[in-house]
Amino acid sequence: MHSHVVRSLGQEIVDGILPRGAILNLEVLSARFSVSRSVLREALRVLESLGMVEPRQRVGTQVLPREDWDVMNPLVIGWRGRSSDYFVQMRELLELRLGLEPVAARLAATAFTPLQASLVQRAAATMVSASASGDQRAYLEADVAFHTSILRGSGNAVLAHFATTIEALLRTRTEERRLTITEYTPASAHRHNELARALVERDATAAHRWSDELLTATLDEFVREAPAR
């Protein structure tokens, strides 16, 4: 019940059903979710830790603006991915990924163990075959494994920490109005395969270049496909 309350209220805040500045009435919410005040307070503490609400004396618990949210947290990423913010979030985090993942790829080219390199190569091969067969689930799982493995195998603890954010972002593609596999997928699968090849060959320069090219093309795709606002 605690998780249900967190998920429901978090999604409603992201969707604007509970707009910034709204005061959450504990009595009303307790009755709505059929939970005790203690369960409700614990759920609100989670949302407070995400920067989404704030208790204020003589006012109550107030909904905070998006600028205060922990937008890198997987929970918030998931909620935004199921909202009208989907394309905005994808663009914002792809822009951030462009500054981080090519660096991680360059580092991974020399930090990877043979096993790590082979796992990334296998994930890229799965993406190519899944693209050809139209297996969207296999493609997504391989995509997640591919990018998180590079970040975690970079030898940089800060970049490795970013892997959970990337996984949460990639999994929001199941909420997209388009299919996971699109007309852009074969070219993307090819770029993943070339990046994997560079990592196996320990070519740091090529790894950086292919990662940058891959993410730039993906960003261009989402900017092109984003609905007019």
Score class of each variant (00 low, 15 high):
Ser36Trp: 01
Leu100Glu: 10
Ile13Met: 11
Val120Leu: 06
Leu26Pro: 00
Ala168Met: 07
Phe87Leu: 12
Gly155Phe: 09
Val53Gly: 08
Arg41Met: 05
Ser38Trp: 00
Val39Ala: 08
Asp212Phe: 14
Arg56Thr: 01
Arg91Leu: 14
Arg20Pro: 08
Pro227Asn: 10
Gly81Val: 11
Thr110His: 13
Phe33Asp: 08
Thr61His: 00
Thr61Ser: 01
Asp143Lys: 05
Ala31Pro: 00
Ala204Met: 09
Thr182Gly: 05
Arg80Gln: 15
Gln11Lys: 12
Arg137Met: 09
Asp68Asn: 13
Pro19Trp: 00
Leu26Tyr: 01
Glu141Leu: 12
Tyr86Glu: 07
Phe222Pro: 02
Pro55Cys: 02
Leu151Ile: 08
Val144Gly: 12
Gly16Ala: 08
Met52Tyr: 03
Leu40Asp: 05
Ala189Gly: 06
Ala109His: 12
Gln116Asp: 14
Leu50Arg: 11
Glu213Cys: 02
Ala226Cys: 12
Ala198Glu: 09
Trp210His: 15
Leu24Arg: 01
Gly81Gln: 05
Thr174Glu: 15
Leu44Tyr: 01
Ala117Gln: 06
Leu119Asn: 09
Arg82Pro: 01
Thr174Asn: 05
Val103Gly: 02
Leu98Asn: 14
Val103Tyr: 11
Ala104Lys: 11
Glu12Ala: 15
Leu195Lys: 03
Pro102Val: 13
Arg41Pro: 00
Val14Trp: 04
His2Gln: 15
Asn73Pro: 03
Val88Gly: 05
Ala109Met: 13
Ser188Thr: 08
Tyr139Lys: 02
Glu175Val: 04
Leu64Gln: 08
Val158Glu: 05
Arg171Tyr: 04
Ala132Lys: 10
Ala125Tyr: 03
Glu67Tyr: 01
Phe33Met: 06
Glu176Met: 12
Met1Lys: 14
Val46Arg: 13
Pro74Trp: 03
Pro19Arg: 04
Arg197Gln: 15
Ala138Gly: 07
Ser8Thr: 15
Val63Phe: 01
Ala117Trp: 02
Glu95Cys: 13
Asn25Cys: 01
Leu26Asn: 04
Ser38Ile: 03
Ala123Glu: 05
Tyr184Pro: 00
Glu54Val: 02
Ala157Glu: 11
Leu219Lys: 09
Ala108Met: 12
Gly99Gln: 14
Leu40Ala: 06
